[in-house]
Simulated assay, not measured.
Amino acid sequence: MYRIISGKWKAKKIAAPRHFDVRPTTDFAKEALFSILENTYDMQSVSVLDLFAGIGSISLEFASRGCQDVTSVEMNPKHTSFINSTAAELDMSLQISTQRGDVYDWLKKFRNNKSYEIVFADAPFETEEKKYHELLSLVLKNKYLKPNGVLIVEHQSRLKLDHPNFKFTRKYGNVSFSFYEPTPEAEEEISNQEN
């Protein structure tokens, strides 16, 4: 069970079936995360990529706050259908597009297809450090971020995910969010494509 913190569906409780093996971001951490994001971005005009979307806690939070373009990538078919049914129930089907697949394979397959202001990744907590580095590389080297974009990785606080694009980490108990900026080369190429 989790709740939507703010926006159109503020305080709405979302109950996943009991047999789902999920770990939604805590309310406290989610509130802090969105406080940071809303100081930088207008939620109604950003595009978001939610990786390892689980049962949609983060995707639904963005949609509730008015975001019109959320892509949720999740491997478990039961979870993707739960996101779809919840989005339909809350009248968010036009805002959230679910993609079923392994996140690493999906990122390799769709490289350069589209870029986003916000990429959020909440890999399973037992993910090895080297897989996090693969994730960082796939997102940052393949221009998934717009020039003003940010990649946010949720991970165990004991992990330190150093990378040249690292900006800062915010710690909330045993959960941390690490923020990464786009590579300058990606910024140049995207702005050249737009001109």
Rank of each mutant, 00 (worst) to 15 (best):
E117V: 15
L60M: 11
S57A: 12
S47Y: 12
I118L: 08
E185C: 09
D122F: 04
G56P: 07
L94Y: 09
E61L: 13
F168S: 14
G101E: 09
S81V: 13
S115H: 04
E61R: 05
M75G: 05
I55V: 14
P147H: 08
M43R: 00
D27Y: 05
F120Q: 08
R18W: 10
D91Y: 11
S85M: 05
A53C: 07
R3V: 04
A53D: 01
K130Y: 12
Y172W: 02
D91R: 08
A123C: 05
K13D: 10
V175Y: 01
T86A: 03
E126R: 15
D105Y: 13
K131L: 12
N195A: 10
I14N: 07
R100Q: 04
Y2A: 02
A16D: 01
A87T: 02
K108G: 07
Y180A: 02
Q44R: 09
P77F: 08
N84E: 10
R65H: 08
G101D: 05
Y180Q: 02
Y2C: 03
K108I: 14
N112I: 06
S72A: 15
A32P: 06
G101I: 03
A63E: 08
K8E: 11
L135W: 10
R18L: 10
M75I: 11
A29G: 03
E189M: 13
D102N: 04
E74V: 11
Y180L: 02
F166M: 07
A186V: 04
N195G: 04
R18H: 07
K146V: 02
E74N: 13
V70Q: 02
P184W: 05
K141Y: 06
L90I: 13
H155F: 04
F52E: 00
S97A: 10
R65F: 08
D69F: 08
P147M: 00
Y2I: 11
T80N: 03
K78Y: 14
F168P: 14
T183C: 08
V22L: 02
V139D: 00
F28T: 11
V175H: 08
N84W: 00
H155D: 02
E134W: 03
L49G: 03
F62H: 09
E126L: 14
K13P: 02
K78F: 13
G101R: 07
E181N: 11
G56A: 05
E189P: 15
L138K: 10
K167T: 15
L140Q: 01
Y180M: 02
R23F: 02
I58C: 00
E154W: 11
N76L: 09
K30N: 03
I58N: 00
C67P: 14
N84A: 00
L33A: 03
R111I: 01
L33C: 07
S93H: 04
S157I: 06
K12W: 12
I190N: 08
T80H: 07
F179G: 00
S97G: 12
S93M: 05
V139G: 01
S45G: 11
E89F: 11
N192L: 12
Q99M: 13
G101H: 07
D42V: 12
S191L: 14
S137F: 05
F52R: 00
